[in-house]
Simulated scan of single mutants.
Amino acid sequence: MNMHRRTLLAAPALLPFGLPSSARAQGEWPQRPINMLVPFVAGGPSDITARVMAAKLGAILGQSVVVENRPGANGAVAGQVLARAAPDGYTLLTGSIGVFAINAALRPSLPYDPLKDFQTVTLAVTTPNVLIINPSKVPATDYAGVLAWLRANGRNVSYATSGVGSSEHMTMELFKLRTNTEATHIPYQGGAAAATSLIAGDTQLTFQNLSGVAAHIQAGRIKPVMVTSERRNPTIPDVPTAAELGLSDFVVTSWQATMAPAGLPAPILAKLEAGCIRALRDPESVQRLNQIGFDVVASTAAEFRTFQEAEINRWKTVVDRANIRAE
């Protein structure tokens, strides 16, 4: 009788030690700060998205989320770090369309596979691209005029981008294929430098993320001609969409998303996914992100995976048809 009673008393104390260590770790996650990598320098779209999300996510999970900028090789440096990280939920990466889709289409020697090495968490935000011109260099006031001018001048026209393989580069190459036009690519180190070259007249036109050039448009330094969203954007409500101008299937967005290493345990993924969605949909987050031209998506991990696969296939077709090569 006494032995039976001692066994019953001892059972609760022994029960936790009977659980697999992985189950205990998953149930208790997170136990320490989470590191959120950003593959570019501070102040860009990925960095802004990460910091807005991290501020809310830390409070939701009860652990701080530390944003760490790891720029280099168009995002490949941070991508490789994530691919090699332990799948324990303590290393994340918030990056762009280039890191998670375009690089896979453009760079055969990429040191990571964005489908095999990463676990999708959430598609955070999107922003449309906008076709803009320097009004003092392009003798046109609308899309039809710009198109006619492009067809008449061909490779004498130069367009700026934030670099080879950037969203702006891919959008312009897709545009050239769809409109049977030509223009010479002038890559810069970042969207700010590309916009500066356009304003200075060193280049004549460019596709840029709306969030990065909205202030220049409002100041009248550059003129918007077309936006690549499904609907007109409230930031530039007078600018028509590509569909309105006769370009079908030309909805193109630059996007920011969050990934974890492949192999992340399902319970941790579920908690992380729910936390990121809640952080992004917080009214304060939405207001801040909308103010700089982002549309909050906050998708599920499964929705993001489907979207990512379609984006990789889409841009691989553009890379192949336009014969684009990474520098």
Rank of each mutant, 00 (worst) to 15 (best):
R6L: 08
L8K: 10
L9C: 09
A10D: 10
A11W: 04
L14T: 07
L14R: 13
F17G: 04
G18D: 00
E28L: 03
Q31W: 04
N35K: 14
D47W: 14
I48Y: 13
A50F: 11
R51I: 11
V52N: 08
L57E: 08
L57H: 09
V65S: 09
V66P: 00
R70C: 08
P71I: 05
N74V: 05
V77L: 13
L82C: 05
P87T: 04
Y90T: 12
Y90W: 09
T91F: 01
G95K: 02
I97A: 14
G98Q: 13
V99A: 03
A101L: 02
N103F: 09
A105W: 10
S109T: 15
S109N: 15
L110E: 05
L115K: 15
T120M: 05
T126A: 03
P128I: 06
S136H: 08
D142Y: 02
D142M: 02
D142T: 10
Y143C: 15
A144G: 14
W149M: 02
R151M: 12
G154D: 12
Y159E: 05
Y159Q: 09
A160N: 11
V164C: 00
S167A: 14
F175G: 07
K176N: 15
T181W: 08
E182C: 08
A183W: 10
P187T: 05
Y188M: 01
T196S: 02
S197R: 02
G201P: 04
T203M: 06
L205H: 03
N209R: 07
L210F: 02
R221Y: 13
S229D: 05
E230M: 07
R232F: 01
P234W: 04
T241R: 07
E244D: 05
E244T: 12
L245S: 06
F250A: 03
T253A: 01
W255I: 09
A257Q: 10
A260S: 10
P265A: 11
I268F: 01
L272P: 06
C276F: 09
A279H: 15
E284Q: 08
Q287A: 15
R288S: 13
L289A: 00
I292A: 14
F294R: 00
D295C: 00
V296T: 12
S299L: 08
T300G: 11
A301M: 11
A301F: 08
A302R: 07
V318G: 04
R321V: 11
N323Q: 12
E327D: 08
